[in-house]
Design a protein around this nucleic acid. Structure first.
Lengths: 154, 154
DNA sequence: TCTATATAAGACTAAATATATCTTATATAT
DNA sequence: ATATATAAGATATATTTAGTCTTATATAGA
């Protein structure tokens, strides 16, 4: 498991849409600017959210994105997994062939427990709650628009 | 957070040592073969475990590694964080300057909660327990010794 | 129907990270 | 002294992630 930039951006996107409520159409450009996500990158993320049934994409002039369901029915888990796939903390790298019986492996049991807990926690949170509170990952106003990679670590 | 190969290898290494008990000296070569970890890579990992005070490294002829403390006092969390640093699910990428007040941000609160849970779960597990049970990540007998990257996904 | 505007989709580039190896140096038992 | 074992850092390679660019498609409105 790793919350990639794409996953983070997906959360921002849905959070922004959630503040407009279910069905409200918001242009990709507005979302991109307000959430500080590169427009083309946002397009990809939106496609994944669309395939997951979370948003609807409207093409053409005056197009944009909108939530298909009420924010209260959209969990943090659903959004994240729409982007990065099902969360799994333990990749069981190196020796997958011998890991079929992972119920026998004590190490994997721990990882699996942790994994379940993590997914449960993320599932408890919905975007109605998130949108009603403060978030530091949405800009109140347009930004400079530069998207050089920060070289922050980890 | 991501359990890298190095982290996985670190667990295997300590698990193998734990089966020999505190203070028992095991050569790097033996560990490398039995845990299927490239010897030079193991050396690096061992250095991190050593700096973390988990193992002691003995140089010279008949050298090797050994646990400094009883396996029951070594947690899964300690080993993992010795290798990959403190676990953090949320990198808060993109906008670290505005994330100082993460207590205000509802999204971060969720991540932080999940993060605490995860670390707690990994801390509950010690290597005496792990070593007493079956594990699928240790080979009973020496392997071929080839270390091509598996191209398994995710 | 034409034009402007908006997104779709995939190729492509660049950067960061992870993984593994190689070389030279150092320590220790015999 | 010598053989054996690990230390430490440089280097190479692969993979993944992040972001951009180009061409195609869809829609509203003149």
């Amino acid at each position: 498991m790793r919350l990639t930039r794409a996953g983070e951006y997906g959360i921002r996107c849905v959070l922004h849409l959630a503040r407009h409520g279910k069905g409200a159409l918001v242009s990709r450009k507005e979302i991109a600017v307000r959430t500080d996500v590169p427009p083309h990158f946002l397009a990809k993320i939106a496609q994944q959210l669309s395939r997951a049934g979370i948003i609807e994409i409207l093409q053409g002039a005056n197009g944009g994105y909108r939530l298909l369901t009420d924010p209260s029915g959209i969990t943090l888990l659903a959004v994240i997994e729409a982007i990065i796939g099902e969360i799994s903390l333990n990749d069981c790298v190196g020796r997958p062939e011998s890991c079929q019986n992972s119920t026998l492996c004590t190490v994997h049991r721990v990882w699996n427990k942790a994994n379940q807990q993590l997914r449960a926690t993320l599932q408890e949170t919905n975007f109605a709650t998130l949108a009603s509170e403060e978030a530091c990952c949405l800009t109140p106003f347009p930004e400079t628009g530069d998207h050089k990679r920060p070289n922050g670590k980890k």
